[in-house]
Nucleic acid binder design. Structure first.
Lengths: 194, 194, 194, 194
DNA sequence: GATGAATGAGAGTTCATTCAT
DNA sequence: AATGAATGAACTCTCATTCAT
């Protein structure tokens, strides 16, 4: 009957995060997700085109929320430095508090064909864009070097944060991810500043 | 008794790089590698335990050569700054000149189960150790901040470089990767320095 | 209680002819017929027991009308020869003017399990009986050979006409089917006559 | 090891005839054919592209043998009449003595998509061509009407014979098919003659 | 060491049918 | 009567791996 179509859609995505995090994308059978969600196998195909589509939808859903929330948080910051600090804090804190999401984001999502990667790149691009905007802003505010290549800077900034998260996930998470935020910020901010 | 006959072992690894880069790990069939190498399907199993073993062996082979060569290059450097510059230059230049290897390293190798990841982590660790040694050296030489968390610094440094390479691979390589080395070095060195 | 509401029953049969002719029986989903008819999937099962039942009902409906009309047309004929001519003309003209029906009759209806075939044989039998009656009549009127095996003759007559139609359907219908009626009549009438 | 590749290919085709005749094409699972042939499921796919390919290959194999043998038999006939008689006799005798083949040819082969039909049409065309050649020969020999439309005549001749076989198969074969050859010949030859 | 035919477990996906509303 | 979301059985095909030669 589907009172809110969103409801079962979300139930399935939640089941998918759990199952992917537990078993890994390739080892997960569609039947596993269905069982975890408490529905029949065929029901999955009412809401998603196929197995890949589940992964992509999942990432888009996670990423959209991530970027949206981050955007509103940034509104309170007064300059690029604060914004960069907020980005790092938010990134590490959010993933640090959602280990299942982190595992899917850092490991499972990279286990897919390049073709599918395109479906994943799009929502990621908005995060990239956000970082680049902050860097540009810093340059305009006279905080960052004028000769900074914004795109390369963004890659280094994102890559640095991302690697910190990946190492945490792969280590089995024996320490608090968010605790690294000052170290990471210090390392990255200096590269940008005059 | 495998892995002795260096010749055919290498032929198979070369065939694997080509095939993985072209088709991707999961889409590649063992039979494809065999055909590319000009041997029978069964022959692959004389030299490798299974499909995963090919990927791991491949990475170990590539990584060992990478780190060995990098080590000897670093011998000529007089301080940590120069060494870090060399690392970045070498990393970007080497992968920039071997697109097939880069594709396998940046994309295909991340498409595997966590279980396999362990087989891949090991050779990577020696690269991580190398970077950390350079950072420690910098601290001892009074070049880098004493309060620097070496491990976190290494993650940011490696993550930054790695992301630059990944973006290049995913972009379809329309620009010269090594050209980014100064920008990347500038961004990272400042984070470390006093 | 099904099959009463003639209107929606007929709408579904019309939708079925169109869909079967377009997609073929096995490729057609019940949902396709429902969409073509503008009703919900479940509604189909109010009027028909299952997918096979649609096909059988469809054939019975078409065949009954076919034989009924043919019967009344034959009333005007004065002897067996004229009747046979009328049969051939009617058969080729009717199917020639209804390509969708022809496609379903000649191709799709033969794509079904033998079990279902029995449901289809019954309405076909009345057409066979009609042809046999005409042949018997011809024998009684002294027009056809006394030693004629009526049943075999009917098979040859029907098979001949039927094959002409099948070839026309499979050819994509680039010519006028009814134009063949004289040729077919000439070929078949001589086999029967003294 | 496959001493003669033909061997296992033929074993599979034999298994397919049996299984299709017993269960019908659509009800038959590839696994059933494999079991009947005494091989693994996957082995079927070494010799055939897919399930449809089995059916098509089967028909081509049967039809080629049918037409080849018929051709050599016709060599002994002195004129078109004898040849037509031989065709009818051969057609009814051959299928009459191979009920499994007959069932597959008359019923199962017609249960497939039109697309596949094309793979089946080709070998059938050589039989059609053969019949048309005999009719043309009869016209040249002055035996058959000059105004005969060869193509239409062939359809009627083939359709007549074919329907006789189909009725025999569908009836459960309680009588001898070949016994009908004189009747069928008489019916068809008169339609052609002057 | 080398071959490659054979294996067979495994999973994604479809769709006829049901039934609560 | 009508709906259409949900069901879940069914089945084709792939491909890593083996082993007799």
């Amino acid at each position: 009957m589907a009172k809110r179509t969103g409801s079962k859609n979300q139930i399935l995505l939640d089941a998918a995060v759990k199952t992917f995090a537990r078993t890994g994308y390739h080892r997960t059978r569609v039947a596993d997700i269905a069982r975890e969600a408490g529905v029949a196998d065929g029901t999955v195909y009412i809401y998603f085109q196929n197995k890949e589509d589940i992964l992509i939808s999942l990432f888009q859903s996670l990423m959209n929320r991530f970027v949206d929330e981050l955007y509103s948080e940034l509104a309170q910051c007064i300059n690029a430095n604060e914004k960069l600090e907020k980005i790092i804090t938010y990134h590490l804190t959010t993933l640090g508090s959602k280990p299942e999401q982190a595992k899917v984001t850092q490991l499972e999502l990279r286990q897919i064909d390049q073709k599918i990667n395109e479906g994943i790149s799009k929502p990621l691009l908005s995060y990239f864009k956000l970082i680049e905007e902050v860097i540009e802003e810093g340059k305009e505010q006279g905080l960052y070097r004028q000769d900074l290549n914004t795109r390369t800077a963004r890659k280094v900034v994102f890559g640095g944060i991302d690697e910190v998260v990946t190492c945490w996930v792969m280590s089995g998470k024996p320490y608090n991810l968010a605790d690294l935020k000052e170290s990471v910020f210090e390392l990255l901010i200096r590269g940008l500043q005059k």
